[in-house]
């Protein structure tokens, strides 16, 4: 009887049923004759295994993403070993590390590296602190807390090209709000975006304005998941508010802080849009050039494709230095 059914199914299949019903019937067969599974060939068992069954779901997106992300990174590495510049095609026959040596002799490279780290550290630390304060303020049974949250997160929903326009106007030397504000205290006016000493700080300030809402959201989600009785227990022990937050609540925000830090650091490594729009082109004002902008300028501004690729690879290695420990840590904790 079972054989007959199987035969029927196979006939139906050859008659050209849709792939969906074919798979359904295949699946059914596994279930119905589970007792005779030894008879099935290894090939068939392999076909019915979960990895193959699930492949139609994850493999197409994986191939598309893998080609554009990982194959492209490999290709980028190959390009960085060539002498490719200007128009035409790259020559892959003569590969060498010359671009990496050239980076060491490039003074612009050192300045960009230094600025990248200043931006990375300054931006990340300030964002984490401001975001934490916002989250703690909003986590105190506040009326309209959702409206406040929505407003603080608003800049994060805007394009960098849009916010850069606003900040150019804010930082305007003659009638920008920042200069008018410090003018009240008898300071300034400063050329915020023109002076090599001030420009990086000004950029960090604007980016903190845009990103602190993001850190706030991350912290808020973590704060909401802390059970209420922990607050009550700390209160019952007679701990002051400050002490309670410092000892009980903030230590529990560590995982949230780590994931926010990873996102912020990786953003700082690739920040390009805001600087491009603020300075109307590939070259930021002196003092604000970072690796991310230098990479795009070398390749797309000056057509030094191979050199640009080598800076790109360095950026990739730097971000890998952040991603790998993070993913490993998440994997260890079973959070992946």
């Amino acid at each position: 009887m079972k054989r007959f059914l199987l035969l029927l199914r196979s006939i139906r299949r050859t008659q050209g049923e849709g792939p969906e019903s074919e798979r359904t019937s295949g699946e059914r067969r596994v279930m119905t004759d589970g007792g005779t599974s030894e008879k099935r060939s290894t090939f068939q068992r392999w076909l019915d295994s979960d990895i193959v069954q699930s492949a139609p779901f994850w493999l197409p997106p994986f191939l598309l993403m893998g080609f554009f992300v990982y194959a492209a990174i490999g290709w980028n590495f190959l390009l960085s070993l060539t002498e490719y510049s200007g128009f035409g095609d790259p020559d892959y026959s003569n590969l060498g590390l010359q671009n990496y040596w050239a980076m060491l002799d490039d003074p612009g490279m050192w300045a960009a590296t230094r600025n990248t780290f200043v931006l990375l550290v300054g931006f990340t630390v300030v964002c984490l602190i401001v975001g934490l304060l916002l989250a703690l303020l909003l986590d105190r049974e506040i009326r309209f807390s959702r409206s406040f949250r929505t407003i603080y997160l608003l800049p994060f929903a805007l394009s960098f090209i849009v916010t850069a326009q606003f900040w150019r106007w804010m930082y305007n030397v003659n009638n920008g709000i920042i200069n008018q504000f410090i003018g009240v205290f008898g300071l300034g006016p400063y050329s915020w975006l023109g002076s090599p000493k001030l420009v990086l700080g000004a950029v960090i300030f604007a980016l903190v304005w845009q990103f602190s809402g993001y850190t706030m959201i991350i912290y808020l989600a973590a704060l909401r998941s802390i059970p209420n009785d922990q607050y009550e227990a700390a209160r019952a022990d007679g701990a002051s508010t400050v002490r309670m937050y410092w000892r009980v609540i903030i230590p529990q925000l560590r995982p949230a802080m780590v994931s926010a830090t990873v996102t912020l650091v990786l953003f700082a490594l690739k920040a390009f849009d805001f600087l491009y729009a603020t300075f109307d082109g590939y070259r930021p004002r002196r003092g604000a050039d970072i690796l991310a902008t230098k990479m795009v300028r070398e390749s797309f501004g000056r057509s030094e494709w191979a050199y640009g690729s080598s800076i790109a690879l360095m950026l990739f290695v730097l971000s890998l230095g952040v991603i790998t420990p993070y993913l490993y840590n998440q994997y260890k904790r079973g959070n992946l």
């Binding site: 979960d50 069954q53 992300v69 991310a292 950026l315």
Partner: peptide, 27 residues
């Protein structure tokens, strides 16, 4: 759908979120 080794594929997906676009833009 559970299968062995999926965590490695998953790690590649997640790492893809963080890869700076500069690293792929020339290719």
């Amino acid at each position: 759908v559970d299968w062995r080794g999926q965590i490695a594929v998953l790690a590649l997906f997640i790492a893809g979120i963080f890869v700076p676009y500069q690293a792929v833009i020339v290719p």
